[in-house]
Structures are given as structure tokens and as C-alpha cells.
Write a protein that binds this DNA or RNA. Structure first.
Length: 476
DNA sequence: ATGTAC
């Protein structure tokens, strides 16, 4: 049996059957939402995996996922039997968010809503970026998938789809080393070829926003953000490619469990000891999928820039690009000792604190920018990682609002017309997107992002910089 | 999230 003990207004200890504890970052309202699905049971099972270092953690946006909760953070030590688990990364490997800052203000653009320049911009983006599920082909990367998988965002920049300066503003430079093309199935390659530069469906989006409020003047200035500025937030991942990589390796690790000496309480928690051939193969394929996703966000960035130039005569810089579905080998300090750990962040964002050597020199003293999108039609946040996050969460925070309704429940309880009406009343232009996607991604299907962000800020895991509000959204 | 079911 597990028991929840509140530590402070933002932290809860989940007491585990074996005597240890997992940690939940939540206020009472968010904790109540987590207790309505299997999220906390899943967290307890993650805590029982071999070689875990520190507590398994759930961020305030956490909800039930495949194996691990979405909003889960867990680190494992290769020298202590630690594992890597595809379920701790998720199906959409390196799903992530990129923020572009334009050089125009929203005010002078005049009327909001349908018929104005923002609708024109959304339509110009939609003409250039294929959206939705299925085999949407762009041709980009089809002849050079190997380059995409090895070099990520740098592949796209090398093809003229972006600027060299973009790469400094992407986590890990937009490229994870160690991509192993031999660990990628022919089927994954087939699904991925031609999907570079496509948005996908579900919660993926390209949103034109304005900086509504600056919460830290100095940090905002350093990031090139100011009140009323038009910005673009895009959210997508590795499409069918990453999905197939996850499927392939979950199956393989499930088969290999006995040989690897793992007793898995849940097939969805398939894992392999770090250093085993199976773990190396998964990490090699995962790196390839991570690079696919970064190439994808880079190509879409280029298309959005074209649309911005055409409709608004605007230019845009990359503020930052976060990955929120990855497992990475990182150096962390544990009880005063430096250790290499495999940090799983599934629906959780890396949030390195000030001074971290992996941050670009011009931002190093600030800490790593963190992007926290809300649900469709609600606010998003720009924040910075902190020393507290480094000390408590392996430098991690939440990744968004997080679901409160399953897709099925949302379809049952909400109507597409009602969702569209509410967005129109709020003056938000919506283009693309299926009627089904509209209800599944409705604000009512998600937690309150302001409440989620208040927890990570209150706990000191992040320092808030700016609040962004939507003007026009292109949905998958 | 996902050639929305191998």
C-alpha cells in the first residue's frame, strides 16, 4: 500500500511498500487529479526498477501514461544495475517545443480573429506545413534520412533550412551523439521517410502568440522577449519514426527480460540494464529518433519563417528548443559525489540551472530556458532552470498543462462546436485540425497551466520569465 | 503520440 504525506504546499511524499518514497510536485487540486488515474501506481512501480538513484518523481502536470506516468522523472546508475526503459521516454521520442521570437508587435496588427492578418498567417503556415495524422509527405529528407538521423537540426541547417545561430539555441545543439542506424528497423525508416517537416496530430500545434506579461524584466530582455511581441511556439516530435522505434524496442526488451535477469511487474515497464547490448541498441535508435525530431522542428521553423516574411514582413530568431521525451546520460552530483546517470524525462523538461557547462555562453549565467505550453487557447510560459531543480529533480520541471480527461472521455463529454465557439469568443483563430482532435485537445481536457506553473515556481524548480497568450493556432 | 487496430 502507498500513502501520501504532504511535505509543503508544493511537495508530497509517496510512501512506498518497501519503505522508500517517491516524490510528487503538486498542490491539493493537482494531487486530486493524479489520484483519479493510475499515475501514482505507475510512479510506485517505476520506483521499484533496478538501479534507481534518488526518488522517482512526478511533476504537477503528471497523468497516466504507457508504463511510466507522463510528467515522470527518474534517474538510473549504470554502475548499480540501473536500466533504460523505452516507456520512460514515451512513444513520441524527443517530442518537444520550440519558441521563435519575431521582430513585430501584436498591437499594430489590428483586429484579432478571423479575416485579419493573424488568420492570413495561420493559413500561410498551413500551406507550408503538412498537418494531421497519416502519411503526409513533404519529400524533405526522403533521400537523406541517414543524414537526418545522424545530424538532427544540423542536417536541416546544412540544407539551407535554417541558420547556424539556431543550433546554439537548441537543447544539445539539436543533435544527440551515438545514433545507431543499425538499431533502427526498416519499418521505422519507411514510416519516417518523408515525414521530416510535418506537424502530426494530437496535441501538436504551431501557435502564434503575444507576450502578454513579463515576469522577469532582465531575463526577458536577455532572451529577446518584450511585452506585446509576436512569438511562435511550435510543438511536435519524431512522428511515425519515433513511434516505430519505441514499438520495436519495447517488444524486443519484453522478449529479452528473462535473459537480462529482469522481473518486470508490468510489460509496459520493459527495460534493459545500461551497458547491455539491448540497452545500447535502444539508446542508439532513440538518439536517431531524437535527431529526427530536431530536424523536424528545424524544417518547420524554416517554413514558419517563410510564412512570417510573406504575411507580416517579419523575421524570427530561435529563443530555445526543449526536448520533453528523452533519456540522457548526464553528470549529476549525488550526496557530494559526481555520477553519470541515465535521466529519463517523460513529459518533463530539462531545466539546468545557472552556470551549467552545457548552456550557451551568452545564457549560461541565467540558467536554461524552459518552455511550458498550455492547452489549446490557453497561456504558455517561458521560465528558467534553477539550482533547486539541479539539486532536487536532476534539473527537470513540468512540460505543460497535463491531461485531466482521457481522449476518450473528452470525446464523450465535449462537442467540437462548443470548443470552437469558446475559442472564437476568446478571439483565437484556429486553422487545420480534425473535429475529433479539437475535442481531444480542448482546454477542458487539460489541467490549469497557471496552477501547474505556480507549483514549479513555488517549489523553486523554475523562475518564471514571461506569460504568452494565443492569437492563432494551427492544429494537427 | 500513432499509416488513430498486427
Amino acid at each position: 500500500m502507498t500513502k501520501l504525506d504532504r511535505i509543503d504546499p508544493w511537495r508530497v511524499a509517496l510512501r512506498l511498500p518497501g519503505g522508500g518514497e517517491a516524490r510528487v510536485y503538486a498542490d491539493d487540486t493537482l494531487l486530486a487529479a493524479m489520484r483519479r488515474d493510475r499515475c501514482l501506481d505507475q510512479l510506485a512501480r517505476v520506483a521499484a526498477l533496478p538501479g534507481l538513484v534518488g526518488p522517482a518523481m512526478a511533476m504537477p502536470d503528471a497523468h497516466q501514461g504507457y508504463g511510466f506516468p507522463i510528467g515522470g522523472v527518474a534517474a538510473f546508475d549504470p554502475e548499480d544495475g540501473g536500466v533504460v526503459s523505452p516507456g520512460g521516454v514515451g512513444f513520441d521520442i524527443n517530442c518537444g517545443v520550440r519558441l521563435l521570437a519575431t521582430d513585430v508587435e501584436a498591437g499594430p496588427l489590428g483586429a484579432r480573429g478571423d479575416g485579419g492578418p493573424l488568420a492570413d498567417l495561420a493559413e500561410a503556415v498551413l500551406r507550408r506545413v503538412p498537418v494531421g495524422h497519416g502519411k503526409r509527405r513533404t519529400g524533405v529528407g526522403r533521400a537523406d534520412l541517414a543524414g537526418v538521423l545522424r545530424d538532427g537540426a544540423a542536417w536541416a541547417v546544412g540544407r539551407g533550412l535554417g541558420e547556424e545561430a539556431d543550433l546554439a539555441r537548441v537543447e544539445s545543439g539539436g543533435r544527440l551523439a551515438g545514433a545507431d542506424l543499425d538499431a533502427v528497423s526498416a519499418r521505422a525508416r519507411e514510416r519516417g521517410a518523408g515525414q521530416v517537416g510535418t506537424l502530426g496530430g494530437g496535441n501538436h500545434f504551431i501557435e502564434v502568440q503575444r507576450v502578454e506579461r513579463v515576469l522577469d524584466e532582465e531575463a526577458a530582455r536577455r532572451l529577446g522577449l518584450a511585452v506585446d511581441q509576436v512569438v511562435v511556439l511550435l510543438h511536435t516530435g519524431s512522428r511515425g519514426f519515433g513511434h516505430q522505434v519505441c514499438t520495436d524496442h519495447v517488444r524486443e526488451l519484453g522478449r529479452a527480460a528473462g535473459r537480462l535477469g529482469l522481473r518486470l511487474p508490468d510489460r509496459q515497464l520493459a527495460a534493459a540494464p545500461l551497458g547491455s547490448p539491448e540497452a545500447r541498441a535502444y539508446l542508439g535508435a532513440m538518439a536517431a529518433a531524437a535527431n529526427f525530431a530536431w530536424a523536424n522542428r528545424q524544417v518547420i521553423t524554416h517554413r514558419v519563417r517563410e510564412a512570417l516574411a510573406e504575411v507580416l514582413g517579419a523575421r524570427a530568431r530561435v529563443v530555445w528548443d526543449v526536448a520533453h521525451n528523452l533519456a540522457k546520460m548526464e553528470t549529476h552530483r549525488v550526496d557530494g559525489r559526481v555520477r553519470r546517470l541515465c535521466v529519463h524525462r517523460k513529459g518533463a523538461t530539462r531545466a539546468f540551472g545557472p552556470g551549467h557547462p552545457e548552456l550557451p555562453p551568452e545564457l549560461r549565467d541565467l540558467g536554461q530556458p524552459v518552455l511550458i505550453p498550455g492547452s489549446m487557447g490557453t497561456a504558455s510560459y517561458v521560465a528558467l532552470g534553477t539550482e533547486t531543480a539541479m539539486a532536487e529533480t536532476w534539473g527537470s520541471v513540468c512540460h505543460g498543462a497535463g491531461r485531466v480527461r482521457s481522449r476518450t472521455a473528452a470525446r464523450k463529454e465535449l462537442s467540437p462546436d462548443g470548443v470552437l465557439r469558446r475559442l472564437a469568443r476568446a478571439g483565437v483563430v484556429v486553422r487545420g485540425g480534425s473535429r475529433r482532435g479539437l475535442v481531444e485537445e480542448a482546454p477542458e481536457a487539460y489541467k490549469d497551466v497557471d496552477r501547474v506553473v505556480a507549483v514549479v515556481a513555488g517549489a523553486g524548480l523554475a523562475r518564471l520569465v514571461a506569460r504568452l497568450v494565443p492569437l492563432a493556432v494551427v492544429k494537427g
